[in-house]
Amino acid sequence: MKKLKVKEISEGLHRSEVIVSVHTTGGDEGLVLDRRSLQNGYIAVGYPIRVDGDSYLVELPRETSSGSWRVWVDGSQLDAAPEKEVA
């Protein structure tokens, strides 16, 4: 299980929610999460679905503001040394 680095932006519409930014290879994407999903600036994303060099395709727990579930991220955004294993 991998964790993805995110940056907290602001409170969400509901008191349980937080808005974070995900740094993808295509730019930053806004993502609404339950505050309990956020652990020390990381969220769980399971195992990468695809690997292309040092880019990893991961599935987010919710849809981003622009409607994406899966985003390509740089390996540096994932916790520890990401394995080449895919789901």
Partner: peptide, 10 residues
Amino acid sequence: IHAGFDGCIR
């Protein structure tokens, strides 16, 4: 509500 979701449902 997709697998892997957590939170209150909007």
